[in-house]
Design a protein around this nucleic acid. Sequence first.
DNA 1: TTATACAATGCATAATATTGCAGTTGCTTT
DNA 2: AAAGCAACTGCAATATTATGCATTGTATAA
Lengths: 152, 152
Amino acid sequence: MSQKQERQQVIRELVATRSVSSQEELRQLLAERGWDVTQSTLSRDMHDLRVARVPTHGGVRYTTADASAATDNRTSLASLVPQLFLGLDFVRELIVVKTVVAGAQPISEAIDSEGSPDVLGTIAGENNILIICRSDAARERVAKRLLTLARK
Amino acid sequence: MSQKQERQQVIRELVATRSVSSQEELRQLLAERGWDVTQSTLSRDMHDLRVARVPTHGGVRYTTADASAATDNRTSLASLVPQLFLGLDFVRELIVVKTVVAGAQPISEAIDSEGSPDVLGTIAGENNILIICRSDAARERVAKRLLTLARK
DNA sequence: TTATACAATGCATAATATTGCAGTTGCTTT
DNA sequence: AAAGCAACTGCAATATTATGCATTGTATAA
């Protein structure tokens, strides 16, 4: 994955999980995580990612489109993940997938319907999915697959 | 209906039906229709109306945001927990939190939005939350924090 | 390796949007 | 009608975001 793609993935997650209100603020959050770029680059990233700037009660906030806008009856993981996936993390045989708002349910269903022997089952919240895998090795395969799909 | 309200209604329609890409452009559209205001006022109107600025293929356009995007009702754990928390239990890197009815969702969101590295993610049911932590040590910290907040 | 083509990025600056402040307008109360 | 208030708005100064251009990085072909 190129630097740019990785960075943009991190941006998607940051913007979805925190209340980022300027590109300069985002630049600092990225810097704390080791990504050193200028505001110019972020302006371009935000455009690439179609991250919207929406007014909130006392200011503004960046946000990604939610699942309702991105999903039109598509059900395969391959078509869902690039749109809805924000990031994942894991411990032992558990994977936690972060998604855009309302993105957990459709992805979760898509995973379940694949009936993979690696996956015991999934539980979806609002924007998190818990995937219970059969083993550490299984977890590795599942995580890798998702990450691959995520970068279109 | 006040001038302001009428104007904002017109703005809603304009923004919904045309591709407006700057407040200055909007100002001109309004001027053609007899509304003479400065861009400053439009900035305030856009905020009142929660009109989002979203990047498109070759530029940006304004669009009315849906409620979820504009709402910034992220409340702090510190204020939520004393009200809603009932107790917790854990095993390995998992914590199960019991809350009052309907208390799981808000606490869950508050935890997620903190973006703690100790927490991989949370899944909320009606009055139970599953918190997936990064490690046993992380689980200890998170549990301790919740218990501390609970007795304030 | 070197050359070539193109993507990615920073810098400086232009384009846009936000906001403090003061003046005006419109309402309500006395 | 006059006074008191709060909402509304313009102006000018700030703050934030976008972008042209030059440079640097990267992948590919020779």
